[in-house]
């Protein structure tokens, strides 16, 4: 399987295999693999001795989790209210056009994942685009091209 059992064990053991730590465990797995491999969810259910439906329920309920592999570059467009009134929607639309994917998707070559985020708390700089944890403030559709070309 993609997920390595001893790696998963070490994550699960850090939380003493407590069912209450399910979300933390999944967060660590996601951090390790950039997504949640399906077999890892089954393994977690087995180790925590909880129904698979609970693990899948949590994994699909929270936005932090993805069941699909993510791109090497992650672009997050802040859709907070401050960014919205300053035109973040147009920035997102331009990114969707340029990358030829919709928000939430990954380019076929696995390079970029485009996502929206509800607020990154850098409202003074809105609209904000975060790519690989680097903040780009006062974004406009025009600046999208140079953002992507710098990659």
């Amino acid at each position: 399987m993609t997920a390595n059992e001893s790696k998963l064990d070490s994550i699960i053991d850090e939380y003493n295999a407590e069912p209450g730590s399910l979300i933390s465990i999944l967060q660590d797995i996601q951090a390790e693999y950039n997504y949640l491999p399906e077999e890892s969810l089954e393994y977690v259910a087995k180790r925590l001795d909880i129904p698979r439906v609970q693990v899948f329920g949590v994994a699909t309920f929270f936005k932090a989790f993805s069941l699909k592999p993510k791109g090497r570059q992650q672009i997050h467009v802040c859709m907070g209210t401050a960014c919205h009134v300053r035109g973040s929607k147009k920035v997102l639309e331009e990114l969707e056009r340029k990358l030829e994917i919709k928000a939430g998707d990954t380019t076929p070559d696995g390079e970029f994942t485009l996502e929206t985020v509800n607020c990154v708390g850098a409202c003074a700089l809105g609209p904000v685009v975060v790519e690989n944890e680097e903040y780009h403030g006062e974004m406009t559709p025009i600046k999208v091209e140079s953002l992507l070309n710098s990659k």
Partner: peptide
């Protein structure tokens, strides 16, 4: 505990469900 990125978990009972390892 780290949140899972669900706005509804700001609601107290949803937050506690999430602390218990359940959907919020």
């Amino acid at each position: 505990n780290r949140g899972g990125g669900a706005f509804v978990c700001g609601e107290s009972t949803a937050l506690m469900a999430s602390l218990e390892g359940k959907p919020g």
